[in-house]
Design a binder for these strands. Structure first.
Lengths: 182, 182
DNA sequence: AGGTACATGTAACATGTTACATGATTCC
DNA sequence: GGAATCATGTAACATGTTACATGTACCT
């Protein structure tokens, strides 16, 4: 039950249309929750039916025309409830680790190339995050009202840093394995 | 498309019944891929229909009786194919980060208690992993054929370490926020 | 008039979750 | 024979993914 709340948060930050939301889910929100435009349109319909958001009044035809939503009081209340509620930490679900375990059984042929690809991608993502941090949270500025936003970004940086280090180690171990199979 | 391959790997490691698989998914495999028994039974049925696994011959009634599976050559081939194939790194999907972002909009009331809860859980999980590492991969032993298994465990340790550190920082920032709202 | 970008949607399917149903075995 | 445990399964629903359909606005 996270997507509706992600949408409520995004709409509170700024009333938007479905496509605008989709773009925001490809950027900042998507760092920790991704969604396709089909999911978003479906969920916007449900949220409207449930009385948590509404379409801003607009003239003329509907199909193919921009449709802006904003959050109703009931939606804000629901988001407050959800934010304070307890949630179980969901366990990791990472196909790459699964493939490593499979490789332990059926052999590591072809695995290193893909690990190297992942390493490059995570390095690029980490560089992105660090750039955003430098731009939006420069060291001099006394961390003001946006400590929470910074904490979220720090999580992204920490996770990408972990993957870069782990992939580097693992690639090294794997090449030892192949040059010197014990 | 990860669950079928997780099951194939588990069955190659050791032929098992549905319930035995469920238990293994609650332990080691579940560290990076969880599944309920309903998912597992459904997937076992599909894999058998697809000719990738088979039921070991057994006498008597079926319902309520243990049913063991093992992997057919086609299943092994499919697992080899999947292991070597490229896969996109899936982006993070973490409700906790979403809630932090929501809290930046609707307020942080009640959030710190749940962050503290998460911190305790991640600390416990980290302690578990470290114990397993000490037991199964003692420092003296020259890392032999099970480098891959160790790499997977190192990933678990690295991720839990990250969460413990991040939650500690974030809780500190949050309490500053509340005692001294700028 | 044709192409491209913008914008909203439908349909079909795959995967994951929750609740419940049923039979076999063992222990008391 | 009743309770607990082992074991396999069904059904309904929620969520996520993939492919496609349709209309508008603007530029050439």
């Amino acid at each position: 039950m996270s997507l509706p709340h992600a949408i409520l948060t995004a709409l509170l930050e700024k009333p938007s249309s479905g496509l605008e939301l989709t773009r925001r889910f490809d950027k900042s929100i998507g760092f920790f929750w991704s969604a396709t435009h089909q999911q978003i349109y479906r969920e916007l319909g449900r949220l409207e039916t449930a009385g948590l958001i509404r379409t801003l009044p607009q003239p003329g035809p509907v199909r193919g025309q921009k449709k802006e939503y904003d959050v109703l009081p009931a939606g804000r209340a629901e988001l407050e409830r959800w934010t304070a509620a307890a949630g179980e930490p969901k366990s990791i679900r990472e196909p790459l680790l699964l493939r490593l375990r499979a490789a332990a059984v059926v052999g590591t042929a072809g695995l290193d190339a893909d690990l190297a690809r992942h390493l490059a991608l995570h390095r690029a993502q980490l560089a992105d995050y660090l750039e955003i941090e430098q731009r939006d949270f420069p060291p001099g500025r006394a961390a003001g009202e946006n400590r929470l936003q910074h904490a979220v970004l720090r999580a992204g940086i920490g996770l990408e840093t972990f993957w870069v280090e782990w992939l580097t180690e693992t690639l090294a171990a794997l090449s030892m394995e192949q040059s010197n199979p014990s």
